[in-house]
Design a protein around this nucleic acid. Structure first.
Lengths: 212, 212
DNA sequence: GTTACCCGGTACCGATCGGTAACATACAGC
DNA sequence: GCTGTATGTTACCGATCGGTACCGGGTAAC
C-alpha cells in the first residue's frame, strides 16, 4: 500500500519502475515523463506524488516544476502523450498493411491480442486516468477526444473493409475491447482471455457488401 | 478540482452528496457508509479524505474511527456493500421472474438499460475502485470475487434459458456491459448508448437447444 | 573571462493527509 | 439515583501533499 520502497531507481531488485539505461542520456523532461508514465499507470495519478516522480526520474522536484508548472499540467502532458502514441500505433498498423483493408483489420486484431496478453496489463491507462479525474479536469477532454477518434477510425476501417453496418460493428468491437481491458484487473481473466477469439469470429462471420 | 465546497450537506444548493433526509434517524455508521459511498463513487477513493466523509455524514472523524479502524477498512466495507447489493439486485430480478428463464434474461437486460441510461452513471463503482487500488489491497479480492460470481451467474442464467454455448454468450454480454460502463465516462457515449439494442439483438438471434 | 542558462540540492511554506488523546454530553438499563 | 456505552467536540500528532525560494555548480556562447 506504499510505494516508498521504490522511489529510488538505483535500489537493488527488479521492482524499479524503469531500467536506468532508459533514463541515461535523456533530458530531464524526458526522464520525468518516462517516470510519470510508469508510476501513474501502475499506481494511479492520485496515489503518486510529484516527489516520487522526480526521484524515479533521477532528478528533483525543482527541475520537475521548471518543466511543468503544476502536477495537473504534468497529468495532461502524460495523457496527451498516451493519446498521441495510441494514434501513432494505429497509423503504423494501417501504413504497414496497405495491401488491403482486410489485412489492416487483421493486423489490428493482432495488436489487440498483444495488448491483452501483456502480463503487465492494468487496463487502458487513459480510461484509468479518466476514472480518477473529476469531470472538469482538462485531461478529460484529451481522453474523450482520443476515444472518440479511435472509435471513428474503427468505423472507417470497417467501412473500408466493406463490412455491412460498419458503425454497429465498431460499437461491438470497441466495447468488447474496452470491456476486456477493464476486466483484466477485476480478476475476470476468463472473459478477457477469450475476447480475441470472439473478435476473430465476429469479424469473419459478419456480412460484407461484396464477397471474395 | 476541489471538493471542499461540498463538505457540508447543510449548505444550500443542489450539489450536496445525499439528501439530508436520508441521513436523519440513521445510526452514525450507516450515515458514514452512505456518505462514503457517494463521495468515493463521485471522486474516487483516493481523492476523498476521511474528514470529508465524516462531515458529509453529519458526524466527525472520531466517530468514524470508532466504527472503522482505518480508511482502508472503510474502503473494504464500502466495496463489500456494493458487491452485496449487486448480488441482491440479481437475486431480486431472478425471483421476480420465475415464470421462465427467458423472462429473467429480459428483466436483466432491462436492468442493464436502467443502469446505462442513468444520468449519474460514472462507470461501475467496483471497477473504478479496482483501478485505484494496488494489487495487494484487501478490497481487490472482494471485487474480483464479485465479478467472477456475476459472470458465473450469467452463464447459469443463459444455460437455464437453453442458449447454446452459454459461457461464450456470457463472455460477450459481460464484456459489452463492462465496456459500456467504462466508456460512458470516456465520452464514448455513442457506443454505450447502443449497447442495449446490441444485447437484445444478440440474445434474440443466438441459437437455442430447443426452439419455441 | 564573463555572461547566461540549465540543473541539482536543500530547506522551507501552508495545507492536508490518516489517525489519536482527552474531555464533555446524552441517554440507556437497572 | 448511578453506571456504562455511544456520540460529539476540540485539539493535536507526525507525515506527506503540491509548490517555491535560494544557492551553487556545470557548461556553452561569445
Amino acid at each position: 500500500m506504499s510505494i516508498a520502497q521504490e522511489k529510488d531507481l538505483r535500489s537493488a531488485g527488479g521492482s524499479e519502475a524503469v531500467a536506468e539505461g532508459q533514463l541515461a542520456l535523456k533530458s530531464p523532461r524526458e526522464r520525468i515523463l518516462i517516470a510519470a508514465r510508469d508510476l501513474f499507470y501502475r499506481h494511479g495519478v492520485h496515489a503518486v506524488g510529484v516527489e516520487a516522480i522526480a526521484e524515479a526520474a533521477l532528478t528533483n522536484k525543482m527541475t520537475l516544476y521548471r518543466h511543468f508548472k503544476s502536477k495537473d499540467e504534468l497529468i495532461v502532458t502524460y495523457v496527451q502523450q498516451l493519446a498521441n502514441e495510441g494514434d501513432d500505433v494505429l497509423n503504423r498498423i494501417l501504413a504497414e498493411n496497405t495491401e488491403s483493408p482486410q489485412k489492416q483489420v487483421d493486423a489490428w486484431v493482432g495488436f489487440v491480442e498483444d495488448v491483452l496478453t501483456n502480463k503487465l496489463e492494468r487496463g487502458c491507462a487513459l480510461a484509468n486516468a479518466a476514472v480518477e479525474l473529476d469531470t472538469g479536469h482538462p485531461a478529460r477532454a484529451v481522453i474523450e477526444a482520443y476515444k472518440q477518434r479511435k472509435y471513428d477510425r474503427l468505423v472507417g476501417l470497417f467501412r473500408a473493409a466493406r463490412y455491412r453496418d460498419p458503425d454497429l460493428l465498431a460499437d461491438e468491437v470497441f466495447l468488447l475491447f474496452e470491456g476486456a481491458r477493464i476486466s483484466i484487473q477485476c480478476g475476470g481473466k476468463g472473459p478477457a482471455s477469450r475476447v480475441v477469439g470472439m473478435l476473430r469470429g465476429l469479424l469473419s462471420s459478419r456480412p460484407r457488401l461484396v464477397e471474395a
